[in-house]
Design a protein around this nucleic acid. Sequence first.
DNA 1: CCGTTAACCTGAGAGC
DNA 2: TGCTCTCAGGTTAACG
Length: 286
Amino acid sequence: MPELPEVEVLKRSLQKKIRFCKIIRIKIYNRNLRYKVPYSINKNLKNNVVNNISRISKYLIFHINFSKKLLIHLGMSGTIHLINKKNFKKNTNTSFYSSPNLPLKHNHIEFFLEKYQLIYNDPRRFGFFKIFEKKSLSDFFNNVGPEPLNNKFNINYISNYFINKKKNIKSFLLDQKFVSGIGNIYASEILFCCKINPLKKAKSLTKLDIKKIRYFSKSILNQAIKKGGSSIRDFKNVEGRNGSYQNEFKVYQRENLNCLNKDCFGKIKKKVISKRSTFFCNRCQK
DNA sequence: CCGTTAACCTGAGAGC
DNA sequence: TGCTCTCAGGTTAACG
């Protein structure tokens, strides 16, 4: 489900609703996520206040107290639901992802907060919950590349990284060690705006190509955040509304449709690159 | 170090 | 209906 913009929208919603809420207890229904959820999570976190919620790339971080941080990754299908205890029966305005027929069997973790119940639902179980001490969390992020919104993702960084790299540019946009936060949807959208063919080898990109990659990575993610993310299934924000960036897609899921660039009369192609569907116009993306 | 592939999971939808 | 196949917003261990 979530790339950087969707996680950012979720973070902002959570901040509005549950910042400074006390965790009363945590119940684990199924600990078999990508990594086993530690049994100690309830003991570690209960009776503590969620002081803040932040985001780095596709990761959510619950700042519990000075040293303890809860790191959450939603994987491919993870969603967080918030149920207002007072409005339990009509919870439409309090659920971020308010699928009416949310299958209960995929509710794996439940946080009982003062005003809310926070539920983690994840059919495919590729997400994870991990507790870190402050220091070890920064070690964790030392192995994650900069996000496009960060100034570390600049022309020098990208050019140096691409020296002698034979892999195609699409694979690099999905490589979280190179740049973090971009996923399969935004990778295609970014390369379309750059007019760069996704199969182009990283080392053969020009200085201008690299400038465009830096610029559009940042601007497209920011636009998507402004639009509340992309809702291709039932992603909802805190007010129960869909994101709308899916209406702005220029190539993603537009196979065989006309290229939207004026003066280009190409058709959008779909090709599997590194096991992921990639959408592009081979007429204007060179 | 580099690049590729398989693997981790479930569910929806297409085609027969 | 029901079976099989493919695909889905992600990551990483293992291998040559």
